[in-house]
Design a protein around this nucleic acid. Structure first.
Lengths: 207, 207
DNA sequence: ATTTAAACATACCAAATGGTACGTTTAGCA
DNA sequence: TGCTAAACGTACCATTTGGTATGTTTAAAT
């Protein structure tokens, strides 16, 4: 595929994602999509063999990007410190950087959008979505295990669900942010998550 | 409206809500809805003058129920204790009761479903949704203010976003629960929220 | 300069969509 | 019992839907 074709494909994906996050997958017809793209049906079906093909390409890209961001952030955190608690704090901080000083509310998470329309998609789609949730659960649970070994928690907590809380945080914050049209919700919830972690494990707070 | 008509209307609302939480609003056609209801188009349009009318009736009912549950839970909590921190703990506990020992993952929140299709709805719809978010924000912020007066927090936190965290918790947990098909996600996140609150304010944890 | 395949446009189709007009049945009340 | 309005069924319609068949243009390699 040539460069121009690849660009067009990306443009379709970007516009489709933007529209889906505001209308849902079923709420975005191909006609409306190509109309906003200033493109014809022939062009669209040259790049995607069906609407379902677009759906799969979209969620795959979104999930892969999310996983990549998570892995990179974790790797960077591991470079900056050898202490597991500091690594987690740094990891959260990197997400804080992304969501602080946003002008507009975050457009939302495509995973969540799909989850509320899951019966429209194949089982494969659910697996693609779960792959991201389960990966962060696994990585964060491992990190929490290290933290727990070094820093006994003030209150005993389940670390798997503590890890889930991180992903859950975004999904929840995005919903509130979108509806209330407040851009800082996600950043604030990240701060609370960080505070919770520090209260649980950080010995410096003993004073 | 007679009793039978009212029953039918409720049946339509219940079935529509169930289908929308799995397919999205645009993903549920009237044909599919009445097919699952074993009902004809004439019957449906006797009770709702349009699909949008159904949408409004649904979100209004859902939001009102949510507000009512919240107000009742808060009122009950205020009866059981005069201490604001205990009131909040009791309030959370009542939601824990709802979400513990669930057999199936919670079907989801209609507010969130609508939020990811907001462009399909009127501005009124957004206001109905925001009403619930803003009410719980207001009530909880007030409660946190009382708590803070009596129990100085271990770490200084923003109480408005701390209140938002409660609503956000559900929205996030529902997404994970639906996708992973795990019924206990919401209950676990409620426990973490409670733990966070206690770590912030509960003086008994000073030991 | 010619070929070739990717990139896109045009015109069309069967099915599904939300909605309406109008007919029939049912339940309660005078 | 007869009347009336609510409750529901049938048949139909214009539009939109996802998708296809068949073109034309563009860009790069031979």
């Amino acid at each position: 595929m040539g460069k121009k074709g690849e660009d067009t494909r990306t443009r379709i994906l970007d516009t489709a994602q933007d529209m889906i996050l505001g209308n849902g997958y079923a709420g975005v017809s191909i006609d409306k999509l190509i109309s906003r793209l200033g493109m014809t049906k022939g062009a669209f079906f040259h790049h995607f063999k069906s609407k379902g093909d677009l759906a799969t390409a979209l969620i795959t890209r979104f999930a892969d990007d999310g996983v990549e961001l998570f892995k990179e952030s974790l790797a960077r955190a591991r470079k900056f410190s050898s202490d597991p608690l500091q690594q987690l704090i740094i990891l959260i901080g990197q997400y804080e950087e992304i969501f602080e000083n946003l002008e507009d509310p975050y457009p939302g998470c495509l995973l969540a959008s799909y989850v509320y329309e899951l019966q429209q998609f194949s089982e494969e789609t659910r697996e693609i979505i779960n792959r991201e949730f389960l990966l962060s659960r696994k990585e964060l649970t491992g990190l929490f295990r290290e933290i727990m070994k070094k820093y006994p928690p003030r209150i005993d907590v389940d670390i798997k669900s503590l890890a889930d809380g991180f992903m859950s945080l975004f999904e929840g914050a995005f919903v509130l942010s979108k509806s209330l049209q407040e851009a800082d919700v996600t950043y604030q919830q990240l701060q609370h998550y960080k505070t919770y972690i520090r209260l649980l494990f950080d010995p410096k707070l003993a004073a």
